[in-house]
């Protein structure tokens, strides 16, 4: 679905990504992990050319993004959803109006837009907040709105740049559930960049590991599923507490 070939990127003498190739299969949830500064964010941002590689090619589906004109690239991007760590919702527009934005950009009729907004918001379970402004929502709710917005134009691919890194464990689980649901029911290929191992372990089917701008390993794993993260954390704490009192 996504094929990167020999892509590389340098920022003002700092090599962010050394030449690397990576193929992401259709329908998988692919995790890219690494410490901060490993180049994983740059890598995912190359997949929709938010960052244009200095060399190499990027293919998404049938389209070779690196050879498209500006206009064609804009059109191609409408088929690639993206969500961010800081959500990047338009704060002066309501939840519904945020989801409406990508539909407006493709010139969909008002009536159809309303229908599609409802579908998307119901899908991520936040339809009841449709008239709220982002500032009135919690972090997890904001990310769900961002997901709904990214899905509005029925993309084949969803790029997630640290989607849960500013969320607490409980809302992280909620957001990951939504992502898995999207992958399973809509068949959307998902790429997740994260530094949180738990995220990778719970839902990814394929993992790539980055270090110092290089791809050090890439392999398939068996996703372990989502348990209630909060309980999990309390269990962990208790274990430490017992260990201390025993010691």
């Amino acid at each position: 679905m996504i094929v990167l070939e020999n892509v590389e990127k340098t920022f003002e003498n700092v090599k962010a990504v050394y030449p690397l190739s990576l193929t992401i299969d259709k329908g998988e949830i692919h995790g890219i992990v690494g410490t901060s500064g490993a180049g994983k964010s740059t890598l995912i941002r190359m997949m929709n050319l938010l960052e244009r590689p200095d060399n190499g090619t990027v293919r998404v589906g049938e389209q070779l993004l690196t050879s498209l004109s500006d206009k064609e690239l804009r059109k191609a991007r409408q088929n690639i959803g993206m969500i961010f760590q800081q959500f990047q919702l338009i704060l002066n527009r309501t939840v519904a109006e945020n989801v409406e934005m990508p539909l407006e950009l493709v010139g969909m009729q008002k009536k159809e837009r309303a229908k599609r907004i409802e579908e998307c918001l119901r899908f991520v379970g936040i339809y009841d907040k449709k008239d709220a402004y982002p500032a009135q929502l919690s972090g997890g709710q904001k990310q769900r709105v961002a997901i709904a917005r990214a899905l509005a134009n029925n993309p084949a691919v969803l790029l997630c740049d640290e989607p849960t890194s500013s969320l607490d464990p409980k809302t992280t689980t909620e957001v990951l559930q939504v992502l898995r649901h999207i992958n399973e029911t809509l068949g959307v290929t998902i790429v997740i960049v994260t530094h949180e191992m738990d995220v990778v372990k719970s839902i990814c089917k394929h993992v790539s590991i980055m270090k110092d701008g290089q791809l050090v390993d890439s392999f398939e794993i068996e996703p372990q599923g989502l348990n209630d993260a909060e309980d999990h954390y309390i269990e962990d704490l208790k274990r430490i507490a017992v260990a201390k009192s025993n010691g």
Partner: peptide, 28 residues
Amino acid sequence: PKGIIEAAISMGASKAQVIFKFLYVEAR
């Protein structure tokens, strides 16, 4: 926030759309 502009570009917004539908709305 610069991220808003990136979000706009990732949605396939043209430069004019970035200005009128994102920048001016957030800065109004």
